[in-house]
């Protein structure tokens, strides 16, 4: 039997995303996941994905609907899907209430998009709650923020490291090291930051990136994921073997590090 494979950065759609083929897209992720061998999709839905409020600045109503849809998927596939609670920290009381509700109903982490920079004190109550409840935070990031960009109040690894330093008891995941931007900047910034893990997702498959991940962060702080492109996730997983990583190291990246971050509940059906 192959070992578990946990995708810590997945997304699903729902009926109010403005995408006519949303159900097919969800089914396709699960079907491709079967082919790849994914045993658990840890996923989020960011509001309405821009349909009725901006993806990265979602309205409270859209946040609530998206999280409810995420919980429905979790109930439908209890051994295969777990959800992040997506929140907009600008609506702090709403965000805290969503997190409380989501975790009570079996969601396993918190997704922070780009509604408020990670350095901002508004994120403190969320990080504090995450630490208290043992729920990791997946922070959407650009690798090296060099300017403001439209549509996002974007954070990078230095911003997340500042939040992580203020909350040493919380666990953070820097999103999609392959998701665009200067990954070397992020990886150099995360040397010696023990409570930030790096997810390998994203469409970027630059040669040299995985080697620098291992050098700067180490295999114990790498978690596997896909985001919008599952093919690139598979390529990076396969390349770890080509790089000469040991079987044990690859097991860490496939699932053991994710269990350290999220707990045993995310191992899935194949455990």
């Amino acid at each position: 039997m192959t070992s578990p494979l946990i995708d810590v950065h997945a997304h699903f759609d729902h009926d109010r995303c403005g995408r006519s083929g949303w159900a097919e897209a969800n089914a396709r992720r699960l079907a491709v996941g079967e082919r790849i061998g994914i045993t658990m999709h840890i996923a989020s839905i960011l509001g309405s994905w821009g349909h009725t409020s901006p993806t990265y600045f979602p309205s409270p109503d859209d946040v609530t609907y998206g999280n409810a849809a995420m919980r429905a998927l979790q109930r439908e596939h209890p051994g295969r899907i777990r959800g992040y609670v997506a929140v907009n920290p600008n609506f702090t009381r709403h965000a805290v209430a969503e997190i409380e509700r989501g975790l009570a109903e079996g969601m396993v982490g918190i997704k922070l998009g780009a509604s408020r920079r990670a350095t901002d004190p508004l994120l403190d109550p969320i990080a504090q709650l995450a630490a208290e409840r043992g729920a990791p935070i997946l922070q959407h990031a650009w690798q090296h923020r060099r300017r403001e960009v439209p549509g996002q109040e974007i954070s990078d690894a230095l911003d997340l490291a500042a939040l992580a330093a203020r909350h040493p008891g919380a666990k953070f995941i820097l999103a999609h090291i392959g998701g665009g931007g200067d990954w070397a900047h992020s990886l150099r910034a995360l040397v010696g930051v023990p409570n930030i893990w790096v997810d390998l997702s994203g469409s970027g498959v630059d040669r040299g990136m995985l080697g620098l991940c291992v050098e700067c962060v180490g295999v114990r702080r790498l978690v596997w994921g896909t985001d919008l492109t599952m093919d690139t996730g598979l390529a990076k997983l396969r390349h770890l073997s080509a790089m000469g990583c040991s079987e044990e190291d690859i097991e860490q990246v496939r699932w053991k590090n994710a269990v350290e971050v999220f707990g045993r509940g995310v191992v899935g059906d194949e455990s």
């Binding site: 082919r35 498959v205 630059d206 040669r207 093919d231």
Partner: peptide, 14 residues
């Protein structure tokens, strides 16, 4: 040598 060569093959495979 800019990208992992297996990436082109995995997308073809999938």
């Amino acid at each position: 040598p800019l990208r992992l060569p297996e990436a082109a093959l995995t997308k073809l495979e999938l």
